[in-house]
Structures are given as C-alpha cells and as structure tokens.
Amino acid sequence: MPIHEEHLIRPENLKTHENLVIDGIDVSGHWSTFIESRVLTNYNEQMEEEIAALPGGEFIHRCWQCGSCTNSCTVNAVNPEFNPRYWIYLIRTGMESELLRDKDIIWQCVSCNKCTYACPRDVAPEGVMKATAHWLELKGHTPKSPSTHFDEVFSEQVIQTGKIEEGRIIRSFFARTKQELMQDWLVEMVKRLVSKLPVTMLMRMGLANVLRPRTKNWGAARDAITEYVDEQNAAHRKALKLDDLVEMAKSEVKPGQAPAE
C-alpha cells in the first residue's frame, strides 16, 4: 500500500458505532467497524513550484521515485518516519496536508549527502530537504527550527566579519534558542580539556574570545553579500506570494478591531 493511503486506517478514520442501523441492518459494534471513505480535494498545486524556487529545491522535478535517497539516508536509519522519497512524492502531487503531518522532522536532515551521492537523476535530495524545511518556515507551518537558528547565527557572523569564532557561535545559538549554556556534558567536556592544557594556551583561547577574528578590509564584501542576500530573500517572498498573504490577512481585520500582535 502506498504510504499516503495508510491514513485510511489511521485510528481517527476507524469508526465503530454502539447503536447503528442502516437500511434495517444492524451495523453496531466492533464487528462492523468502518473505515471512513476519503476524497482528496485540497491539493496544493503551487507547492512543487514554490519549493523549486528556493535554494536546493531546483531539481525536484527530475525525481523518478526510485527510493535510493531514503534507502541511503542516515536519518532514516535512526527514524523510519524520515522519508525523503515519500516527501518528494507528496510535494510533486500537491498533497500538502499529508506533508504537514511530518513537518516537525523534515529539518533534521544532517546534510551527509548520501542521497545526493546515490540519486541516479541528480535531484540533489539533500537540497530539496533544506528547501522544504525553509518553505515550511516561510509559510508559517513551523517555527524556525534549531538548525535554522544555527545557520543564521553562523552566517550573520561570517557575513559581518568574514570569519567565525566558535565560542561566540555557541553562546549566540544557546541564547537564541533559549537554552542553558551550562549543559552537564559541555561542562564535563571543558573540564576534561582544561585539566590538560597549559595556562598560556588557555590565555590564547580567552583572547580569541575578546579580539574577534576577522578578515581585514571585509567591508565591501560584506555590503555586496548583504545586498545580494536581501535581493534573494525578496525574490523568495515573491515566489511564495508571502506579501499577498500578509495583505489578505490585513484586509480580513475588521474596521475598529486592533490587529493581533
């Protein structure tokens, strides 16, 4: 059975009636359990095009559904619900409601590139996973994932200074995702490390924290990258018609009623 038909037998679609008579026939009780019939009408015909407009999603149309991606997938091996082949199928057939059932795990792709290595059609499924996760966030289906927060913290530092400093990345990431910095295992790791290091080296590490490493004369590159990234973000918003959605939401606010903050 194709996976998308599985939901016909999901618990919420099984109906057992205590007292039901249809055309004079008693269909009560467990022996007369029904499976609700289903007619799909809510196809999202734009979904594939929108995901293809985001970086990484460009080649989704090439997919032949051979399953090499899922077969080779690192995350699938530890969580069978993580199924790139199936998601590509849902996106291409417009079955948005089915895709949304898995919306909270799609971001977990670890970019190991085993799928891209295995794919006979150069779909670059790793890119499609990133584009899909990005699409879910832009459309408001999911909040920003921890991975997106990490990408943003990291990229902002690179674009600003040309380089990164790991300590600063870790602190900014924990702050942005509202996590405790003093994780038991991080503390243990630092303890094991520090016990062996000479004082001069610890001073050097401390200094790197204060004097941020940076690429000299980076300003012009920073401005050129920022200008390009802003243009791309505007193009993505346009492709996903996000500004139209905002306008629609505004027009639905009744006169005299304060828009929800």
């Binding site: 970086p55 890119g127 990408d151 990229s155 690429t215 990258i225 390009y228």
Partner: peptide, 24 residues
C-alpha cells in the same frame, strides 16, 4: 587574509554566497 568558507551553514542561507566565499 583568508575568510570562512561558509562551512555547513551559509549554503542553507544561500549556496551562491558559499560559492563566493570559497572563490575568494
């Protein structure tokens, strides 16, 4: 005076920016 290559992260913001970083 090298710069960061973008690691595993910048490509998720924009792959072509990552290409630029390495090209520099």
């Amino acid at each position: 005076n090298w710069n960061c290559c973008g690691a595993m992260e910048v490509k998720n913001i924009d792959p072509k920016v990552q290409t630029y970083l390495s090209s520099r």
